[in-house]
């Protein structure tokens, strides 16, 4: 793995900041959504995958995990949906890092992996996703 400092292209879209803003927006929206009485909603908040198969889908509990994150309860969020929680925390950390580097006028950072490392990371991600789903199914 190689970590390089690169000069920021002023024309480039700051994607870490965009995704960070989205993560915050979704967290706030979820915190509001779980407080709305069910009768007010245009569509019922039920997972069709769960309703039809009896098994949770990989994102089941995601909205409640977002809401738990909004309340600062990281452990509860992890128990509700580890994948969503880890992804959101990762995005927020990357966005905070990017924002800090921009504000302090530091170089941007770029990670690069060789083929072997990239292959290993892909496998690890796929395995983690499968383990996550297994956890959700077993926990039910």
């Amino acid at each position: 793995m190689k970590l390089e400092r690169v000069t920021r292209d002023p024309q480039a879209v700051p994607f870490p900041l965009v995704f960070g803003a989205l993560a915050i927006l979704c967290t706030v929206a979820a915190a509001i959504l779980v407080r709305i009485p069910g009768a007010w909603l245009l569509t019922p908040l039920r997972c069709p995958f769960l309703a039809l198969t009896g098994l949770p889908c990989p994102t089941c509990g995601g909205t409640r995990a977002f809401a738990a994150l909004a309340g600062g309860n990281l452990w509860r969020a992890l128990l509700l949906n580890p994948l969503v929680t880890v992804t959101v925390v990762g995005i927020l950390a990357a966005a905070a890092g990017s924002l800090w580097r921009r504000l302090t006028r530091r170089f941007a950072l770029r990670f690069s992996l060789n083929r072997r490392e990239e292959f290993a990371l892909r496998g690890a991600l796929a395995t983690a996703a499968a383990l996550h789903w297994t956890f959700l199914i077993l926990r039910r």
């Binding site: 069709p48 995958f49 039809l52 198969t53 889908c57 990989p58 994102t59």
Partner: peptide, 9 residues
């Protein structure tokens, strides 16, 4: 595919 059940429904 994970939410294809929605489409099928």
């Amino acid at each position: 595919a994970l939410c294809c059940v929605i489409i099928a429904a």
